[in-house]
């Protein structure tokens, strides 16, 4: 599904990602954890196609294609989805209208006919239910005046409608109370399938109580310093991040 090879990324001349190797197969859920400033959100942004980041070396293959050659909209149409850490408020653009435009752009890319208003409405109702999204929010402008929790639910709702092949959840748990966290996690779990992969970026282990990952990676200072199974997340919860050394040279000398 996704393969990162020695990915180096800089912004404004500062190197943030310093050689990431990662392979994610179809159907797998990979959690990426790490302290603030370790490069987690940079990784999400680069994969989604934010243009202010500069890939200085390395490559990214998505379904066998060179992902870095594609612009953000083409990546989305190919099946990549980013659930934003800070979903953007867009006054004047209706949530449903926006989503229908997005879905039909993706369908067109896949050679499918556009969904008409009635079929779309049916789909939206069904999917909104998955994350228990208040139907009133469908009629509002995208994220405008939504609470923090509503914004995150709206992201997962968008994901449910757009049915991506690879979904990247960038700190979707931040700002959620325990009930919202459970609802969002259930939404994500209901979308798990053998054809769909997830990258779950989080600072805290608690999200992984609900969304059980296949692999856990620790990102520190732009490098993956540790990889393991679900138990790694529990160890991080207990011990923090300090015991992991970010400098491979020091690691080797130990």
């Amino acid at each position: 599904m996704l393969e990162l090879k020695n990915l180096h990324v800089a912004i404004g001349g500062n190197e943030i990602l310093k050689g990431i190797d990662l392979k994610i197969n179809a159907g797998e859920v990979h959690a990426i954890m790490g302290p603030n400033g370790s490069g987690k959100s940079t990784l999400a942004s680069v994969l989604a196609g934010r243009e202010e980041y500069e890939v200085t070396s390395g490559e990214v293959l998505f379904q066998g294609e060179n992902l870095l050659d594609l612009d953000a909209e083409t990546r989305a149409r190919e099946g990549l989805f980013l659930a934003f850490q800070y979903p953007v408020e867009i006054p004047g653009v209706g949530n449903t209208y926006f989503l229908r435009t997005a879905l039909n752009a993706i369908r067109e890319h896949r050679g499918q006919p556009p969904l008409d208003a009635i079929d779309f409405l049916q789909l939206v109702r069904e999917k909104a239910d998955i994350v228990k999204l208040d139907p009133a929010l469908l009629k509002r402008a995208v994220n405008e005046g939504f609470s923090g929790g509503e914004k995150k639910r709206n992201e997962i709702f968008h994901m449910a409608v757009l049915e991506p092949r690879l979904a990247i959840l960038d700190e979707t748990d931040s700002g959620l109370d325990i009930d919202a966290l459970r609802i969002v996690s259930e939404g994500v779990n209901s979308l798990r399938s053998p054809e769909r992969s997830f990258i779950v970026i989080t600072h805290y282990q608690r999200l992984l109580d609900h969304i059980i990952p296949d692999s856990v990676h620790v990102l520190k200072d732009g490098r993956i310093v540790e990889s393991g199974g679900r138990e790694l997340a529990l160890e991080l919860e207990a011990r923090g991040y300090d015991w992991l050394d970010s400098d491979p040279a020091l690691e080797a000398a130990r």
């Binding site: 909209e73 149409r77 926006f98 997005a102 752009a105």
Partner: peptide, 11 residues
Amino acid sequence: ALFYLRARGID
């Protein structure tokens, strides 16, 4: 906002 729309597949 522009990036948000594009990241959902809208050109």
